[in-house]
Structures are given as structure tokens and as C-alpha cells.
Computed example of a mutant assay.
Amino acid sequence: MAEREKVTVRKVVGMKGKKPIVAITAYDYPTAKIVDEAGVDIILVGDSLSMVMLGNPSTLQVDMHDMLRHTAAVARAQPRALLVADMPFLSYEASVTEAVKNAGEFLRVGADAVKLEGGSDYVDVVKAMGRAGIPVMGHVGLTPQKHKLLGGYRLMGKSAGEARSIIDDAQAIAEAGAFSIVIEYTASEVAAEITKRVSVPTICIGSGPACDGQILVIHDVLGLSDASPPFAKRYVDLRSIMLSAVKAYKSEVEEGKFPQDGMYWHMKEGEHERLAELLKGKSVTSA
């Protein structure tokens, strides 16, 4: 079998306007193996793991330790896809120096790039990361780490003024050196304008079809999320499938049908009898 060609930042940039970019999240080794085998272009270790993996109410509860651990697990799958790691809340906002240092830690554990939320306010951060050799994916529109400031998880860009601000943010991040930009839960017309105006690929999530690519959370795709956003699509009801399997296992154990012959093994011939002799006269103790 021919070795698969690794997806690089340069290859992703070259896909703009030529081939739709397919991105999806993964947070562990087995899931990363599966989505990579499916042929996706980008795997994002999203801070959405805070909710879908750890049961937290928002993305604000995960830190560098959490994100690095899950990124390292995904990296062990050695994906062909470009591996991008989300920088968690307060890992890049305090100072440029701290931001670069934290971003570097993700590359140390196997990420190919990092993603950070925000626009014009983080131009210096993006430039500094570029100087350090760290590829950056931008993220504009709805920025979940700032949902308290934004007034909740709301559709962005509905007014001309807010739309202009989002476009300016995207252009600033692109000019600062970001190799691609995620546009989340933003009016589709705004996403289309950004896609036309920036030279790097745009990747939509809940922002319409005009972007250069799309991304979804794997748990939404598989039907495993407690509450999916309105823009997500469930491609299979894996929760029901898993529930049915576990119920079947429970039933077979309770009815004595599991394990079956061929799922357990015996001692060598004659050894059980020898064991019985060895145990004669010995008291039975509880395990």
C-alpha cells in the first residue's frame, strides 16, 4: 500500500477555491484513527472537548493540561490529516510571550498548528507565532470562549455594523499570517464576503455553504451530544446503537448466555484433578 501523503499547512492553503476542505474534531486515539481513515483534511482537537468529553458547561473549564493531553493522544494516531489544536481560554490572552510559549507546547506533543479565537486584538500574537514557526488557524464570528461578553451563543453578523467588524477581524488575522480562518455561527452573507476578501481558506461551522470548507464536532455527527447546536447534522444515531449493544450484553450476562464456548479456556488435561488433590484438606477462603 502506498504511503499516504501528509496534509500540510501549505496544502490546505492551496485548496482554497479548488477543493472543499473537510474538517472534523477528534479528542482521542481511536476516534482520530477512524476519522483519518475516512480521509478528512483537518482534525481539530477542539476545546469543545470540555463539554462533549468532560461534561463541563462550556469551553472555559479546560486548560493547557487538558488540551495537551488530548492533543498528544490524537497525535499518536499519526494522522495523515493536518492536526490542529485549540488554544484554551487564557492560554494566549495575557501576553504575546506566554501565547507563543503555550502554542509551542502543542507542537511539542504532535500538533501541526494551533487555533485561537479573536480578530484584530490578536494580530500581534499571530505575527509572533509566525516568527516562531507556529502555524495559526484563526477563528472569528461567534467565539465561544467569549460567550459571556457576547451575550451568549448567538448568531453573529446580523447587522451591517457587526458584520463589518467581523470582516475586519478576519482580514486582520489573515494579513497577520493565519493560514486559514474558522467562521462560526455567522450570517452566511458575511461568511461569503470574508471568503471573497481573504487570500486564505475559510472553514464554516454554522455559517453557510460559501466557505472553502466545513467543520463539525464529531459527537454531533455521531449523535452522541447531549445537546447539538442548530447548525449541526446528525449522520447516525450512535447513542441508540451503543445503548442497544450494552443492554444486549447486560441481558446475556444475567441470563447466563455470556461468555459462550470459545470465549474462555480450560486447564491442561489432568491438571484440574491434580489441583483438586492439592486443595484437599485446605479451607476455602473468600476472594
Rank of each mutant, 00 (worst) to 15 (best):
L278D: 10
A276C: 10
E273W: 09
S228H: 05
M263E: 15
K282Q: 13
Q260S: 15
S225I: 01
L238G: 00
E184F: 04
V198M: 08
A187M: 03
V200D: 01
G262T: 02
E184A: 01
E252R: 14
D212P: 03
K268Y: 02
T202I: 08
E271P: 00
G262V: 06
Y264E: 01
E252F: 01
S207E: 04
E193K: 13
M242R: 11
D226N: 10
M263S: 11
L275S: 11
E193R: 14
A276K: 14
A210P: 03
R239Q: 12
E252M: 11
I218W: 13
K233V: 12
M263L: 05
G262P: 06
E273H: 10
V182M: 08
S199F: 09
A191P: 01
E189N: 09
A248R: 14
M242E: 12
P259T: 08
M267W: 07
L243V: 11
E269A: 13
S228Y: 06
I218P: 07
K247H: 11
I183Y: 03
V246A: 10
E254Q: 15
E269T: 11
E193A: 14
S188G: 04
G223T: 03
P259I: 05
H266Q: 14
V246M: 12
P229F: 03
G281C: 08
M242P: 00
S207C: 08
D220C: 07
W265P: 03
H272W: 13
I181Y: 02
I194R: 09
E277C: 01
V190W: 12
K250Y: 10
L279M: 14
H219R: 07
L275K: 10
R197V: 01
R239I: 00
P229C: 01
F231T: 01
V182Y: 06
A248E: 14
D212F: 02
A276W: 02
I215D: 06
H219K: 08
Y235V: 06
I205T: 11
K268P: 12
A248S: 15
A187S: 09
W265R: 14
R239E: 12
Q214V: 05
R239A: 13
S251H: 14
H266Y: 13
C211T: 04
D220H: 07
L222H: 04
F258D: 01
A276P: 01
V221R: 00
I205F: 07
P259C: 12
E189S: 06
V246F: 13
A248C: 05
I181F: 05
I218F: 15
K280A: 07
L216F: 13
I215L: 06
M242I: 15
I215C: 08
S228D: 00
L243Q: 15
K233E: 13
P201G: 01
A276D: 08
R234Y: 04
E252G: 13
E184S: 03
E271H: 09
R274P: 00
H266M: 12
S244H: 14
G281I: 04
V221E: 07
R234V: 15
A187L: 04
I183W: 02
R234D: 03
